[in-house]
Design a protein around this nucleic acid. Sequence first.
DNA 1: GAAATCCTACTCGGATATGGAGTGTCCGAGTCTACGTGG
DNA 2: CCACGTAGACTCGGACACTCCATATCCGAGTAGGATTTC
Lengths: 158, 158
Amino acid sequence: MSGGVEWALHCCVALTAATEPVPAVRLAELHDVSPSYLAKQLQELSRAGLVRSVQGKSGGYLLTRPADQITVLEVVEAIDGPSAAFVCTEVRQRGPLAASPESCTAPCGIARVMYEADHAWRQALRRVTVADLLADAERAQGPQLRDTLRGWLTSTHG
Amino acid sequence: MSGGVEWALHCCVALTAATEPVPAVRLAELHDVSPSYLAKQLQELSRAGLVRSVQGKSGGYLLTRPADQITVLEVVEAIDGPSAAFVCTEVRQRGPLAASPESCTAPCGIARVMYEADHAWRQALRRVTVADLLADAERAQGPQLRDTLRGWLTSTHG
DNA sequence: GAAATCCTACTCGGATATGGAGTGTCCGAGTCTACGTGG
DNA sequence: CCACGTAGACTCGGACACTCCATATCCGAGTAGGATTTC
């Protein structure tokens, strides 16, 4: 899995506390990561429609939906792509003992197991929203976290 | 996910029907894949203890356990490695609003979601055994598949 | 005929090149803000 | 005092290098089997 997924999720959580657009540079500073690379991730989130980009002097990024309507799965798929990790190359139809094409209408057992596992994985990611992530962080670091975040995001930095 | 996982699984299913060691070259011919690359996958299966290698003139590979005692997860982990896809870099402890180390004894919400999803994925793969895969293939291609495989694997080829 | 020996051929195992995707970076196009100016 | 125009600076967006891992391959170490030779 791409490492940028973690950054993107953290950014979504931070944007939950934002009331005005937050530039990519500020999000990068908040998390102490490479600004130029984070910009790429945010770009992908923008393409996926999860965040809205505002151009101009006081521009930046903003969530397009309430945090409880953005699932972790959506963020992951925005960065890593929506395609499944396993791709069946139809090995059963190759070689000297190849199965007849008409007996291969349904995916083979191997592919089916992989697809089911992939489905279970996605299901687990779909169950959790960005709002849940923020709530968890508040539980660990104190309920004032949201306000602290908002304050830091909106304040002007040297 | 590594594409070799598919090959390895097909090989395990084929080895289910084998009564004597099957060389890597024959398995490659059976599935019409690159012999030298398949050899690497079988080597990893051997390292993981799923198959036993027999050297010498009529050597090859053999399952070390009954097929109903080999889960798909074991094969996947043998090829792709046992480590989880997601690695938490502890972003929460970095930057100007870093969380205090003592409040980070438990994994953060993001990591937890990822680990749970990973667990669900592995659980789904653990439920299915190589024997199940063979049974499924027999259901699709006919019950004589196992004998056909054994015959082809043991016969001498040009 | 049987046993010991040697040779051959075949097997796996690890070390070795290559390609593509992920990683990381940069600069240009676009646009909002703010200031200055004129009425 | 207000409206307008212009300049400026800041933003995102896409195009451009680099690195690392998955892919693909090869050759050497080791061994079982069989043929040969000898008793």
